Amino acid sequence: MTSCHIAEEHIQKVAIFGGTHGNELTGVFLVKHWLENGAEIQRTGLEVKPFITNPRAVKKCTRYIDCDLNRIFDLENLGKKMSEDLPYEVRRAQEINHLFGPKDSEDSYDIIFDLHNTTSNMGCTLILEDSRNNFLIQMFHYIKTSLAPLPCYVYLIEHPSLKYATTRSIAKYPVGIEVGPQPQGVLRADILDQMRKMIKHALDFIHHFNEGKEFPPCAIEVYKIIEKVDYPRDENGEIAAIIHPNLQDQDWKPLHPGDPMFLTLDGKTIPLGGDCTVYPVFVNEAAYYEKKEAFAKTTKLTLNAKSIRCCLH
Protein backbone atom coordinates (compact mmCIF):
# COMPACT_ATOMS: atom_id res chain seq x y z
CA MET A 1 0.00 0.00 0.00
CA THR A 2 1.25 3.48 -0.78
CA SER A 3 2.52 5.19 2.33
CA CYS A 4 0.80 8.50 2.86
CA HIS A 5 0.24 11.29 5.27
CA ILE A 6 -3.15 10.63 6.84
CA ALA A 7 -5.12 13.78 7.64
CA GLU A 8 -6.61 13.77 11.13
CA GLU A 9 -10.30 13.13 10.49
CA HIS A 10 -12.88 13.64 7.80
CA ILE A 11 -14.21 17.18 7.50
CA GLN A 12 -17.58 17.74 9.16
CA LYS A 13 -18.20 21.45 9.72
CA VAL A 14 -17.51 24.19 7.18
CA ALA A 15 -18.45 27.87 7.35
CA ILE A 16 -18.46 30.43 4.55
CA PHE A 17 -18.06 33.98 5.86
CA GLY A 18 -19.18 37.02 3.89
CA GLY A 19 -19.18 40.62 5.02
CA THR A 20 -16.16 40.48 7.31
CA HIS A 21 -15.62 43.82 5.59
CA GLY A 22 -19.05 45.28 4.92
CA ASN A 23 -18.18 47.05 1.66
CA GLU A 24 -16.66 43.99 -0.05
CA LEU A 25 -19.86 42.96 -1.71
CA THR A 26 -19.19 39.70 -3.55
CA GLY A 27 -19.02 37.65 -0.36
CA VAL A 28 -21.98 39.54 1.09
CA PHE A 29 -24.08 38.88 -2.01
CA LEU A 30 -23.14 35.20 -2.29
CA VAL A 31 -23.67 34.46 1.41
CA LYS A 32 -27.06 36.19 1.39
CA HIS A 33 -27.98 34.11 -1.67
CA TRP A 34 -26.84 30.87 -0.04
CA LEU A 35 -28.76 31.68 3.14
CA GLU A 36 -31.90 31.76 0.99
CA ASN A 37 -30.97 28.93 -1.35
CA GLY A 38 -27.96 26.88 -0.31
CA ALA A 39 -28.32 23.89 -2.63
CA GLU A 40 -25.12 24.64 -4.57
CA ILE A 41 -22.93 24.64 -1.45
CA GLN A 42 -24.31 21.47 0.12
CA ARG A 43 -22.31 18.26 -0.08
CA THR A 44 -23.33 14.84 1.28
CA GLY A 45 -22.19 14.31 4.86
CA LEU A 46 -20.95 17.88 5.23
CA GLU A 47 -22.43 20.72 7.24
CA VAL A 48 -21.88 23.98 5.35
CA LYS A 49 -22.99 27.18 7.08
CA PRO A 50 -23.03 30.54 5.23
CA PHE A 51 -22.73 33.46 7.64
CA ILE A 52 -22.65 37.27 7.54
CA THR A 53 -19.84 38.19 9.91
CA ASN A 54 -20.24 41.96 10.31
CA PRO A 55 -23.94 42.75 9.75
CA ARG A 56 -23.74 46.36 10.99
CA ALA A 57 -20.92 47.16 8.56
CA VAL A 58 -22.81 45.38 5.77
CA LYS A 59 -25.90 47.48 6.49
CA LYS A 60 -23.84 50.69 6.27
CA CYS A 61 -21.73 49.38 3.36
CA THR A 62 -18.54 50.30 5.20
CA ARG A 63 -15.42 48.26 5.98
CA TYR A 64 -16.10 48.26 9.73
CA ILE A 65 -17.89 50.17 12.48
CA ASP A 66 -15.23 50.64 15.20
CA CYS A 67 -12.21 48.56 14.15
CA ASP A 68 -11.16 45.96 11.58
CA LEU A 69 -12.90 42.67 12.40
CA ASN A 70 -10.27 40.77 10.42
CA ARG A 71 -7.40 41.77 12.73
CA ILE A 72 -8.75 41.14 16.24
CA PHE A 73 -9.13 37.37 16.60
CA ASP A 74 -6.28 37.14 19.09
CA LEU A 75 -6.62 35.67 22.57
CA GLU A 76 -6.43 39.14 24.17
CA ASN A 77 -9.51 40.47 22.37
CA LEU A 78 -11.40 37.19 22.49
CA GLY A 79 -10.79 37.01 26.24
CA LYS A 80 -11.94 40.53 27.15
CA LYS A 81 -14.85 40.81 29.54
CA MET A 82 -17.99 41.47 27.51
CA SER A 83 -19.37 44.98 27.98
CA GLU A 84 -21.10 47.70 25.97
CA ASP A 85 -17.89 49.75 26.21
CA LEU A 86 -16.03 47.31 23.96
CA PRO A 87 -15.75 48.21 20.26
CA TYR A 88 -18.56 46.63 18.26
CA GLU A 89 -16.20 44.37 16.29
CA VAL A 90 -14.56 43.04 19.47
CA ARG A 91 -17.98 42.06 20.81
CA ARG A 92 -18.84 40.56 17.44
CA ALA A 93 -15.54 38.64 17.38
CA GLN A 94 -16.43 37.07 20.72
CA GLU A 95 -19.87 36.08 19.39
CA ILE A 96 -18.30 34.54 16.26
CA ASN A 97 -15.72 32.71 18.37
CA HIS A 98 -18.55 31.29 20.48
CA LEU A 99 -20.48 30.16 17.39
CA PHE A 100 -17.61 28.74 15.32
CA GLY A 101 -14.80 28.17 17.83
CA PRO A 102 -13.57 28.40 20.41
CA LYS A 103 -10.26 29.19 18.73
CA ASP A 104 -7.57 26.53 19.24
CA SER A 105 -10.10 23.99 20.53
CA GLU A 106 -11.33 20.61 19.33
CA ASP A 107 -14.84 22.05 19.00
CA SER A 108 -13.94 24.71 16.43
CA TYR A 109 -15.17 24.47 12.85
CA ASP A 110 -12.95 22.41 10.58
CA ILE A 111 -12.77 24.96 7.76
CA ILE A 112 -13.75 28.61 7.41
CA PHE A 113 -13.73 30.23 3.99
CA ASP A 114 -13.62 34.01 4.43
CA LEU A 115 -14.69 35.88 1.28
CA HIS A 116 -13.03 39.19 0.44
CA ASN A 117 -12.64 41.65 -2.41
CA THR A 118 -9.69 43.86 -3.18
CA THR A 119 -9.45 47.01 -5.27
CA SER A 120 -6.03 45.73 -6.40
CA ASN A 121 -5.54 43.78 -9.61
CA MET A 122 -4.97 40.46 -7.85
CA GLY A 123 -7.36 38.17 -9.72
CA CYS A 124 -8.24 34.99 -7.84
CA THR A 125 -6.18 34.70 -4.67
CA LEU A 126 -6.10 32.07 -1.92
CA ILE A 127 -4.58 33.17 1.38
CA LEU A 128 -2.58 30.58 3.32
CA GLU A 129 -1.51 31.05 6.95
CA ASP A 130 0.63 27.91 7.45
CA SER A 131 3.26 26.68 4.99
CA ARG A 132 3.33 23.20 6.56
CA ASN A 133 -0.37 22.41 6.20
CA ASN A 134 -0.55 19.44 3.83
CA PHE A 135 -4.35 19.48 3.70
CA LEU A 136 -4.63 23.12 2.61
CA ILE A 137 -1.75 22.88 0.14
CA GLN A 138 -3.55 19.91 -1.43
CA MET A 139 -6.84 21.84 -1.47
CA PHE A 140 -5.21 24.90 -3.04
CA HIS A 141 -3.54 22.69 -5.66
CA TYR A 142 -6.95 21.20 -6.51
CA ILE A 143 -8.58 24.64 -6.77
CA LYS A 144 -5.75 26.04 -8.91
CA THR A 145 -5.88 23.03 -11.25
CA SER A 146 -9.67 23.19 -11.50
CA LEU A 147 -9.68 26.91 -12.32
CA ALA A 148 -7.00 26.66 -15.02
CA PRO A 149 -6.41 28.33 -17.41
CA LEU A 150 -7.74 31.11 -15.14
CA PRO A 151 -4.79 32.01 -12.88
CA CYS A 152 -5.16 31.54 -9.14
CA TYR A 153 -2.43 32.85 -6.85
CA VAL A 154 -1.52 31.77 -3.32
CA TYR A 155 -0.51 34.45 -0.82
CA LEU A 156 1.35 33.07 2.20
CA ILE A 157 1.03 35.40 5.20
CA GLU A 158 3.22 33.35 7.54
CA HIS A 159 5.63 35.86 9.11
CA PRO A 160 7.50 36.03 12.44
CA SER A 161 6.38 39.56 13.33
CA LEU A 162 3.32 40.33 11.18
CA LYS A 163 0.44 38.80 13.10
CA TYR A 164 -2.93 39.04 11.38
CA ALA A 165 -5.37 37.43 13.90
CA THR A 166 -7.90 36.86 11.12
CA THR A 167 -11.58 36.10 11.49
CA ARG A 168 -11.08 32.70 9.87
CA SER A 169 -8.21 31.77 12.22
CA ILE A 170 -10.66 30.24 14.70
CA ALA A 171 -11.02 27.25 12.32
CA LYS A 172 -8.67 24.30 12.19
CA TYR A 173 -8.13 25.09 8.50
CA PRO A 174 -8.50 28.82 7.75
CA VAL A 175 -8.88 29.83 4.09
CA GLY A 176 -8.90 33.42 2.86
CA ILE A 177 -10.40 34.02 -0.59
CA GLU A 178 -9.61 37.37 -2.19
CA VAL A 179 -10.86 38.33 -5.66
CA GLY A 180 -10.32 41.60 -7.51
CA PRO A 181 -10.15 44.17 -8.84
CA GLN A 182 -13.50 45.41 -7.61
CA PRO A 183 -14.28 48.83 -6.13
CA GLN A 184 -15.66 49.00 -2.61
CA GLY A 185 -19.45 48.98 -2.52
CA VAL A 186 -19.71 47.56 -6.05
CA LEU A 187 -20.72 44.17 -7.48
CA ARG A 188 -19.09 42.85 -10.67
CA ALA A 189 -20.49 39.75 -12.37
CA ASP A 190 -17.07 38.48 -13.49
CA ILE A 191 -15.61 38.74 -9.98
CA LEU A 192 -18.68 37.06 -8.47
CA ASP A 193 -18.43 34.19 -10.95
CA GLN A 194 -14.75 33.64 -10.11
CA MET A 195 -15.36 33.59 -6.36
CA ARG A 196 -18.32 31.26 -6.78
CA LYS A 197 -16.15 28.82 -8.75
CA MET A 198 -13.42 28.92 -6.11
CA ILE A 199 -15.93 27.91 -3.43
CA LYS A 200 -17.39 25.18 -5.67
CA HIS A 201 -13.99 23.61 -6.30
CA ALA A 202 -13.04 23.88 -2.61
CA LEU A 203 -16.22 22.09 -1.53
CA ASP A 204 -15.73 19.46 -4.25
CA PHE A 205 -12.23 18.81 -2.90
CA ILE A 206 -13.58 18.33 0.63
CA HIS A 207 -16.27 15.98 -0.69
CA HIS A 208 -13.70 13.85 -2.56
CA PHE A 209 -11.45 13.83 0.51
CA ASN A 210 -14.30 12.73 2.79
CA GLU A 211 -15.16 9.91 0.39
CA GLY A 212 -11.67 8.48 0.84
CA LYS A 213 -9.94 9.69 -2.31
CA GLU A 214 -6.18 9.77 -1.95
CA PHE A 215 -4.46 12.92 -3.20
CA PRO A 216 -0.87 12.21 -4.32
CA PRO A 217 2.07 14.44 -3.37
CA CYS A 218 1.88 17.85 -5.01
CA ALA A 219 3.62 21.21 -5.16
CA ILE A 220 2.26 24.74 -5.49
CA GLU A 221 3.86 28.10 -6.17
CA VAL A 222 3.19 30.65 -3.43
CA TYR A 223 4.06 34.28 -2.76
CA LYS A 224 5.28 34.76 0.79
CA ILE A 225 5.05 38.17 2.44
CA ILE A 226 8.37 39.84 3.22
CA GLU A 227 7.26 43.29 4.36
CA LYS A 228 4.68 46.01 3.84
CA VAL A 229 5.71 49.25 2.12
CA ASP A 230 4.28 52.64 3.09
CA TYR A 231 3.87 55.59 0.77
CA PRO A 232 6.62 58.22 0.91
CA ARG A 233 5.49 60.91 3.35
CA ASP A 234 6.34 64.54 4.12
CA GLU A 235 7.25 65.99 7.51
CA ASN A 236 3.54 66.22 8.40
CA GLY A 237 2.94 62.55 7.67
CA GLU A 238 1.01 63.29 4.48
CA ILE A 239 1.45 61.11 1.39
CA ALA A 240 4.17 62.68 -0.78
CA ALA A 241 4.16 60.26 -3.73
CA ILE A 242 1.70 57.87 -5.34
CA ILE A 243 1.99 54.45 -6.97
CA HIS A 244 3.95 54.80 -10.23
CA PRO A 245 1.95 54.03 -13.42
CA ASN A 246 4.42 51.24 -14.25
CA LEU A 247 3.58 49.51 -10.95
CA GLN A 248 -0.18 50.14 -10.95
CA ASP A 249 -2.18 46.94 -11.63
CA GLN A 250 1.02 44.87 -11.75
CA ASP A 251 0.28 42.64 -8.76
CA TRP A 252 2.21 39.32 -8.82
CA LYS A 253 4.60 40.65 -11.50
CA PRO A 254 8.34 40.88 -10.74
CA LEU A 255 9.57 44.26 -9.50
CA HIS A 256 13.31 44.57 -9.93
CA PRO A 257 15.73 46.89 -8.10
CA GLY A 258 15.68 50.22 -9.91
CA ASP A 259 12.16 49.72 -11.29
CA PRO A 260 9.75 52.64 -10.74
CA MET A 261 7.79 52.32 -7.51
CA PHE A 262 6.37 55.77 -6.64
CA LEU A 263 5.86 59.07 -8.46
CA THR A 264 5.87 62.50 -6.82
CA LEU A 265 3.62 65.33 -7.97
CA ASP A 266 6.61 67.15 -9.44
CA GLY A 267 7.37 64.13 -11.62
CA LYS A 268 10.19 62.50 -9.67
CA THR A 269 10.32 58.70 -9.86
CA ILE A 270 11.21 56.78 -6.70
CA PRO A 271 12.62 53.35 -7.66
CA LEU A 272 12.79 50.10 -5.73
CA GLY A 273 16.02 49.91 -3.76
CA GLY A 274 17.97 46.92 -2.55
CA ASP A 275 19.28 44.05 -4.63
CA CYS A 276 16.34 41.61 -4.61
CA THR A 277 13.51 41.13 -7.08
CA VAL A 278 10.16 41.13 -5.28
CA TYR A 279 6.56 40.45 -6.27
CA PRO A 280 4.16 43.19 -5.16
CA VAL A 281 0.61 42.43 -4.00
CA PHE A 282 -2.27 44.58 -2.78
CA VAL A 283 -0.88 47.38 -4.94
CA ASN A 284 -2.72 50.64 -4.14
CA GLU A 285 -5.44 48.82 -2.16
CA ALA A 286 -8.05 51.40 -1.13
CA ALA A 287 -8.61 49.91 2.34
CA TYR A 288 -4.90 50.03 3.19
CA TYR A 289 -4.39 53.78 2.95
CA GLU A 290 -5.43 54.04 6.61
CA LYS A 291 -3.02 51.22 7.44
CA LYS A 292 -0.18 53.08 5.68
CA GLU A 293 0.42 50.27 3.21
CA ALA A 294 1.05 51.07 -0.46
CA PHE A 295 1.74 47.43 -1.29
CA ALA A 296 3.29 44.31 0.19
CA LYS A 297 6.55 42.80 -1.03
CA THR A 298 6.55 39.05 -1.51
CA THR A 299 9.03 36.43 -2.56
CA LYS A 300 8.11 33.47 -4.76
CA LEU A 301 8.68 29.94 -3.51
CA THR A 302 7.38 26.39 -3.87
CA LEU A 303 5.55 24.45 -1.16
CA ASN A 304 5.28 20.68 -1.23
CA ALA A 305 2.55 18.55 0.30
CA LYS A 306 2.61 14.88 1.16
CA SER A 307 -0.06 12.53 -0.08
CA ILE A 308 -3.23 12.77 2.01
CA ARG A 309 -6.21 10.54 2.53
CA CYS A 310 -9.11 10.67 4.95
CA CYS A 311 -9.21 8.27 7.89
CA LEU A 312 -12.47 6.49 7.10
CA HIS A 313 -14.21 4.86 10.07
Rank of each mutant, 00 (worst) to 15 (best):
E8R: 07
F140I: 10
Y223S: 00
Y64V: 10
I112G: 03
T145G: 06
F282C: 13
A296V: 15
N304V: 12
G19L: 03
K297H: 06
V281H: 02
R91A: 07
D74Q: 10
I6Y: 10
D66C: 06
H98W: 14
V31E: 00
I137R: 01
G176E: 09
L99W: 15
L247S: 00
Y153D: 05
H116F: 13
N70H: 12
K103I: 07
Y142E: 00
I143M: 06
I52R: 00
K103Q: 13
E9N: 13
E8V: 12
D259A: 06
C67Q: 10
F295L: 06
T26V: 03
D249F: 02
T53E: 02
D204E: 05
F295H: 00
W34E: 00
R56Y: 14
A219S: 15
L312D: 06
N284W: 01
D66W: 07
V186L: 15
L203T: 01
A286W: 09
S307K: 09
P216H: 05
A171T: 07
L126F: 10
G19H: 04
D66S: 09
P232L: 05
M195N: 04
V278D: 02
N77R: 12
I199K: 00
S120F: 01
Y88N: 08
W34L: 02
G27Y: 02
K228N: 13
A93E: 08
I11M: 14
R56D: 11
V154D: 01
I52H: 03
T299I: 14
K172I: 04
R43N: 04
I239E: 02
R132V: 07
F100W: 07
T2K: 09
V31M: 04
I127E: 04
H313Y: 10
S169K: 08
E293I: 09
I199L: 14
T264E: 05
F73E: 14
E214C: 14
P102T: 15
L99F: 14
G237V: 01
N121R: 06
K268Q: 09
P217E: 13
I72A: 10
A171H: 03
A148Q: 06
V154N: 01
R63E: 07
G18W: 03
G79Q: 13
A286L: 05
F51K: 04
A39C: 09
G38T: 11
I308T: 05
V48N: 03
Y223A: 03
